[in-house]
């Protein structure tokens, strides 16, 4: 039963090799889907290309449904999985700053690394920026400390927050994703894609 490394079924020495292989799959798909070009990525925010929405929500729904099924069949112990902790203030403020970074830089960190690997110099500058951003955060941390640790609720789950069952939420996630896949072509048809 998974997760294999935390359960001790696979030795911890394999964890970094697994990380490398997972990363290769991740980077390959990001590049192959066109996420190595910021023109494709920011299309989401100007309405001319929704490839990010299609890939992101297909992946999110596949993974969420897959993990629920793995749990149902007893193949994975969900209690042992790392769950993104919820800090309300930091998640919202940090997310908004990331949104500003997205429309100015044209990448997010994962896509920036993937695009750097095929020679995009703009992506390399973005990646350089991520190191400077971490440094800036480290140096300003004393000022932010109280705010970023406020509103902590631990590894809470969205279906508990909304007060519905896990199965129903997963079903709704898929319905909303498919609904968006039907709607976005209507916007794409009306907005001219820039040529470059």
């Amino acid at each position: 039963m998974g997760p294999l490394v935390p359960q001790g079924i696979i030795g911890p020495e394999w964890d970094f090799i697994i990380a490398l292989v997972i990363g290769m799959g991740f980077g390959f798909i990001l590049e192959a889907a066109g996420f190595s070009s910021s023109k494709n990525l920011v299309g989401l925010f100007y309405g001319y290309d929704f490839v990010v929405l299609r890939v992101f929500f297909t992946a999110a729904a596949t993974a969420a449904a897959g993990i629920v099924l793995f749990d149902y069949f007893g193949w994975i112990d969900v209690e042992m999985l790392y769950v993104q902790p919820t800090y309300w203030g930091a998640a919202i403020a940090g997310g908004m700053i990331m949104g500003l970074g997205f429309v100015t830089g044209g990448f997010c960190p994962g896509t920036g690394f993937a695009a750097s690997s095929i020679g995009k110099i703009d992506a390399m500058m973005f990646v350089l920026g991520t190191f400077l951003g971490a440094l800036l955060y480290g140096e300003t941390y004393p000022l932010l400390k109280d705010f970023v640790n406020s509103g902590y609720e631990g590894g809470i789950k969205i279906y508990d927050t909304l007060g519905i069952s896990r199965g129903l939420f997963t079903f709704l996630l898929i319905v909303v994703a498919v609904g968006m896949f039907y709607l976005v072509p209507l916007i794409e048809k009306r907005v001219k894609k820039p040529e470059y």
Binding site: F26, G101, G105, P109, T111, G129, T130
Partner: peptide
């Protein structure tokens, strides 16, 4: 390139605050 650098700084700053990025 200037705005790519600024974007990288902002994105990582926000991601570190929010304990993670888009990934």
């Amino acid at each position: 390139l200037f705005w790519a650098l600024i974007g990288g700084i902002l994105f990582e700053y926000g991601a570190t605050m929010a304990r993670g990025c888009t990934s």
